[in-house]
Amino acid sequence: MSTATATIAKSASRKLSLDRRYLPVLGTIIVFLLMLVIGGVRYENFLSPAVISNLFINNAHLIVLATGMTFVILTGGIDLSVGAVLALSSVITATLLQAGVPLILVLPIALLAGSIIGLGMGVMIQYFDVQPFVATLAGMFLARGLCFIFAPESVPIRDEGFIAITNWGLSTGRWRITAAVVIALIVVACAWWILHRTRFGRTVYAVGGGESSATLMGLRVARTKVTVYVISGTCASLGGILFAMFSRSGYALTGVGMELDAIAAVVIGGTLLVGGMGFVLGSVVGVMVLGLIQTIITFEGTLSSWWTKIVIGVLLLIFVILQRILSLRRT
């Protein structure tokens, strides 16, 4: 009997150690479910389809940002420019549409703006040995400055085609899904496929795990490192288009500090900042946790908005310490 339990315990522990990679993500999912339960018990109508749908609708742009950020952080880098690039692409979209440029041209131009900034930062980092932190900081200042050159004031979007896309949505009962959410989910699916089903994806993990070993293995480290910044920049400008759909305007001051939300979502989602370990789906759950904090504070009513920041900080602290304990036990 006791030997049987011992074997079971042994096999269970082996299974656990196999799944250790998933532990941080599991922790995030548990926190997410706990928050749902607490919210459901405390407030009426909390677990309603409308609240859950809104969670996705309000955070579609952040999901896309966090997805791009996951690529960069997996290689051990960081991208501080995403908030400013998001603003830049929303401003470009709005100004070009206002100038009468057809929608079919505007969207690729806005997307390309982010890709080009990402490419520039990637080249600075890879070929000129500038620290990712500094290079993307420069990218952030550049994008924010360009925003003000294009349009110092908020530009409304009145293009009919754009508004038609914005208004498109599916709803069954109280469940609702918008074009932005569909796009965000497609991006996440693509990112998952790239990271786990392509050679490029394996290289991203390999670079984060150890850059010199990846180089010695003959992997295309340089190309991969530049590409992740291009991906992050493109995701950020796509996020900008989604944000323009959400707010129906382009404004140079949108997305201030949004890079921190994206980084926080990725970290809460269980991706290690040293690189090499993490999942894009974890980042999506991370965004959902951030969104849920906001929702709970809105439902509570008496709490002021600054509690959001404090709660996110405390949550970050808990997750970081948990990750630290996990990685200590691993070694």
Binding site: I78, F133, L260, I263, A264, V267, L273, V274, W306, W307, T308, K309, I310, I312, G313, V314, L316, L317, V320, I321, R324, L328
Partner: peptide
């Protein structure tokens, strides 16, 4: 605790303005 500086100070950066 041996936490990476960038993430350790990110905590106070986020929570600090709230405080």
């Amino acid at each position: 605790f041996g936490i990476q500086p960038i993430i350790a100070t990110l905590i106070l950066m986020t929570a600090g303005r709230g405080v």
